[in-house]
Write a protein that binds this DNA or RNA. Sequence first.
DNA 1: GAGTGGATTTCGCAT
DNA 2: ATGCGAAGTCCACTC
Lengths: 262, 262
Amino acid sequence: MPGSKLPTVLVDPSVEEAENLVKEAVSRNKTLLVIGRCWVHYLGRAKSKLGPGERILIVKADGSLLVHRSAGYEPVNWMPGGDVVFNVQAKGKILEIRALRQKPVETVMVFFDEIQLVASLALVDSGEFSLYASEEDMQKAILLRPDLLEEGFRPITYEKKVEPGFVDVYGMDKDGKLVVVEIKRKTAGKAAAVQLARYIEAIRTRADRAVRGILAAPSIAKDVQRILTTLDLEFRHVDPRKCAELLSRAETKKLAEFFKET
Amino acid sequence: MPGSKLPTVLVDPSVEEAENLVKEAVSRNKTLLVIGRCWVHYLGRAKSKLGPGERILIVKADGSLLVHRSAGYEPVNWMPGGDVVFNVQAKGKILEIRALRQKPVETVMVFFDEIQLVASLALVDSGEFSLYASEEDMQKAILLRPDLLEEGFRPITYEKKVEPGFVDVYGMDKDGKLVVVEIKRKTAGKAAAVQLARYIEAIRTRADRAVRGILAAPSIAKDVQRILTTLDLEFRHVDPRKCAELLSRAETKKLAEFFKET
DNA sequence: GAGTGGATTTCGCAT
DNA sequence: ATGCGAAGTCCACTC
């Protein structure tokens, strides 16, 4: 076993013991875990108060801080990492942990009056994370296999700058008509249709010729079909998962070349 | 001390020991913590792979699952709580924890091959979280930015003693008319309107001049608008959240200065 | 139940 | 540094 260092763990420690380990952890940029009864104040972008209760506090090596309750995906209080400074001190029976960030200026203060567990960790983690089926994957897949969009479609550029922003994909259909493609990785709402319409509008006035607008997404919201019809836009079903599968490594190379050209 | 139950903690457990505690925790809806070397697969709305590394796994009482790395505010893998089903089993030296959600259909699979710590917690947490400003905060905010109440309003005093009690804020409108403001942090009911009316009454008789009464609150109860009209009082929508934001900006400045010193 | 908008959004990538 | 847009966004609210 590549003996990774075991965490230093204190169960039901005294305030002093906890204070020492917490200080050691934050000063050495370890990952810190504190479980116990606490209350929390936040002041910065907003202002909040959290009354006493048992929670999990995590302070990561990069300074990010999380206070998690027993339910809910999101932390009830937090601070993103970066330029965060910590101040830890025991005041009587209470352990105070303060975090201060500079940009933007904000502070989280956690007060523990009962500590069940403190752990100081030196997590070794070089594992790679890869995500498939993002909007970018859909774009790549369409560039690589234009038939996904429609037969005979030929991409010209991607992320093309036009007046309001960037067109996801821009190309020509089998009849030589210009095509603007807006990609959404999940159900496309009204906003997507309107955005596409704006691009079309901008290009039509500039190019002074017919332009087709295609919304490529796994599905569209209920009333959006009506909007599309009104705006003379089209919807094309494209499955992000299928797109991801298409992107094998070999094909990605070809894609790299395509990207280089354009 | 209301002796909250201490967590069950295993440091450097065997796979079997870990398996037992993890199973016990998820089956009894406790909050679970596992720290160790793992890799993670996600399949659902997208698809992701996370290579081996040391992380923190949290499974909460509501089924939400978080995999945290040593840096970053966000979990690298997760599952929101709700209709989540878990499957835990040891396969040889590897502990598998699978979470499956139905809507949408998605699954997270975590594989541990080294376990540093397992903890099963029964977090007791009834503390209230309030992001919104207190009534006092709303008062401060209105004094700081009178425009919140109405354009041209100028506060004169606050917490002014008048016959029945204390007026929250007292000032003048842009036409020089006296204004009495009653602040409520939540939906204002009949009592608030009546209270305001009493202040107005007292001041009118004393000052012998026109006085406007404004009820400042995020909203008013259904029939209160009628009462206000009858009593010739006005309602002004004031968002406690906006007040909190405003105050936090102001108070944050003090914070910034304080930290500049230190 | 679906759609819409906000978030102490966070995060990355562009200019 | 700043700004813009996507996110496995999550979440609360409305229809």
